[in-house]
Design a protein around this nucleic acid. Structure first.
Lengths: 194, 194
DNA sequence: ACAGACATTGACTGATCGGTCAACTTAAAT
DNA sequence: ATTTAAGTTGACCGATCAGTCAATGTCTGT
């Protein structure tokens, strides 16, 4: 399989697993839905779990790059970028096919912290926190890591509830919470007095 | 199967599904782990999904009752009860076997909003919001429902991240966020000036 | 002790599971 | 045109899947 075909496979597998679940989707079904035979899949992935890991890595890269670009496109000031994250999330929630977070799903189905799939999900979240802390630092937060994890909590809660409730309402509520957190953690900005 | 035996089955099934996942745990395995034969299980549940629904309903009742009692035990003032929720969550996170939220797992594996299992998970969250709004109203919030959903977002985010990261740190961060939300939404209290 | 209710056991059904194989087909490189 | 690489097809392996069945065992009530 050429590199581009392998990438296509992983991309398509990602979509199929995201929509159908990791355990519920078997390899016969996955082959049908991706258009790649099982033999070809096993030429490039030792096991189903290795393929799942590849989909998570791809999703991690795609999501973090997308979020970074959206946040930078929606705002230039670091402080405003942190808040803009929730506008970006609102966009995502509106997408057809939105069904929560790939990594939350992965950790739900692979519960053990030591499991590579679970660990990859945890790593994704840690990398997001690192990124948020970087922006928080630029924005002048006295505790960038603290702020980062607080925003991550709100982000994750919003995603989960967007899948279970009214997406736009949840996005708006999450943004309001983020505003409070940011105003509390970073002096100045938005015309509000602390 | 007597009522108490049926209840035992559902309780044990809940534990097995919570730890192992809904799709990953088959009925043969479930029978072994609960000590009830498949024939007996099917005497009382038309399908595996019906049993899963029964475990979710039991979990909903148990969790909401537990949370209500903990919040009431930890604080008497409604405002403080809202914050105490996060102390209760911190206790839960510390329990051996903690592996996120049964309903988030359910919605991760049963993605379609129309699916009964997904709908039951959504209903659980809605009932929690109703309860939080009730307390928020008693606490004097001008927008009890808004406050309720904001707290629910933080709660859900904390649960998900507690399964992926340092449990106690996440609980503390979530409580700090909740404090900000509550202080913003309810005048007075905690000696802080708005 | 006996009858009825309830549960277990092991086998069974047809289907699917992850993964492998041989034979064949298609694509790419030379 | 030929060779090599890569992929497809359909069958196959042993195991498991949800759900059912008949025979048997246990428990409960009289």
């Amino acid at each position: 399989m050429s590199a581009s075909k392998r990438d296509d496979l992983v991309q398509n597998a990602l979509k199929v697993f995201y929509k159908g679940g990791f355990h519920a989707i078997g390899m016969d079904r996955l082959a049908r839905d991706t258009g790649v035979s099982k033999t070809a899949i096993y030429k490039h992935f030792r096991t189903k779990e290795d393929l799942i890991l590849a989909t998570l890595r791809l999703r991690d890269e795609q999501f973090r790059n997308w979020l970074r670009r959206r946040m930078e496109a929606l705002a230039t000031d670091p402080r405003d970028q942190l808040l803009a994250m929730f506008d970006a999330l609102a966009e995502w929630f509106e997408e057809p096919g939105f069904q929560s977070c790939m990594f939350v799903k992965a950790s739900a189905e692979y519960q053990e912290r030591g499991h590579p799939i679970h660990a990859t999900a945890a790593e994704h979240k840690r990398l997001l926190a690192v990124y948020f802390a970087e922006i928080a630092r630029k924005a002048g937060a006295s505790d960038p890591e603290g702020l980062a994890w607080q925003l991550l909590i709100v982000k994750e809660g919003a995603i989960v509830l967007a899948h279970l409730h009214d997406q736009q309402k949840v996005a708006a509520d999450a943004k309001a919470v983020a505003q409070l957190i940011i105003d509390s953690a970073i002096p100045g900005g938005s015309g509000k007095v602390d």
